[in-house]
């Protein structure tokens, strides 16, 4: 028989979830590597909001329509020499009024390496099953809701949108490059084709999945030892209470509840 029992219903558990989402805040990561044939650096940040808890005995907490809010930024480095043909202005000879003629040398253009900055933000809703985990960490009892498995995130719409954003971003950058005009459409097509939806998905998946893999919301936190003050101070002294054990479970009753039990000692 536990010394303390606390129970919350689905509505209160949902409130705890939203508080936990706020406490988790915004997480971020960054990295770099290949994006198609190009090199790129990227960063991502993510937070969670919303969602409704369904308590499913014996130990499943299902969160429905949880919002995964994320932003990603890419800085893509494109060596145009890799995708555009080599190009030279031919020698030009022209008669000059005070000289026979003058000839310019053949001038070969070395295409520059451009950097394309792209950012994109979106929200994906997901539904996933979570488990309750009560554990003692460095003198503090934590009750966490930990995701089971990895929810499927449909990143294809994001990849399509990012590809469109790359097209929008790259065009003015290319327009500023001398002599590229006639090759502009070719360059844009080559860049978009080389990166492709698959290329973006290959980066977005590993970049964003870690935010939800192992996702943990802390819904309860209590120091293992804490003081309890008497009702009438002069009579009883302050007493340190020790939380020997905390357990959490989803319990079926007239309505499903999230139940925390604690054993204590003085």
């Amino acid at each position: 028989m536990p010394d303390i029992t606390v129970a919350v219903d689905q509505s209160a558990a949902t409130t705890l979830l939203h508080d936990a989402e706020t406490a988790l805040g915004t997480q971020s990561t960054s990295g770099g590597g290949s994006l198609g044939p190009f090199s790129a650096s990227w960063n991502a940040s993510a937070s969670f909001s919303g969602g409704v808890i369904d308590l499913l005995p014996p130990n499943i907490i299902q969160i429905t329509n949880c919002n995964f809010n994320y932003s990603v930024g890419f800085s893509i480095s494109v060596d145009l020499n890799a995708i555009l043909p080599s190009f030279c202005l031919p020698q030009i000879c022209i008669p000059i009024p005070f000289d026979g003629s003058i000839c310019t040398p053949k001038i070969c253009i070395s295409w520059p390496t451009i950097t394309i900055p792209v950012s994109y933000s979106d929200t994906i809703q997901f539904t996933a099953d979570f488990s309750l985990v009560a554990h003692l960490v460095a003198g503090t009892w934590l009750v966490d809701v930990v995701i089971d498995g990895i929810p499927a995130l449909d990143l294809t719409p994001a990849a399509v949108a990012i590809l469109a954003a790359i097209e929008l971003a790259v065009t003015p950058i290319l327009l500023a490059i001398p002599f590229i005009g006639p090759f502009l459409a070719l360059a844009v097509d080559a860049i978009l084709t080389a990166i492709g939806i698959a290329g973006l998905l290959g980066v977005l998946g590993p970049l964003l999945t870690p935010f939800v893999a192992g996702l943990t919301f802390n819904i309860y936190k209590q120091p293992q030892v804490f003081p309890v003050l008497p009702n009438v101070p002069p009579i009883d002294p302050e007493v340190d209470i020790n939380l020997d054990l905390i357990q959490a479970a989803v319990v079926a009753s007239d309505k499903n509840e999230l139940v925390l039990t604690a054993n204590i000692s003085a």
Partner: peptide
């Protein structure tokens, strides 16, 4: 008797 030439790269 001097000449300057410039190739125009942009519209």
């Amino acid at each position: 008797e001097a000449v300057y030439s410039h190739a125009f790269g942009s519209v």
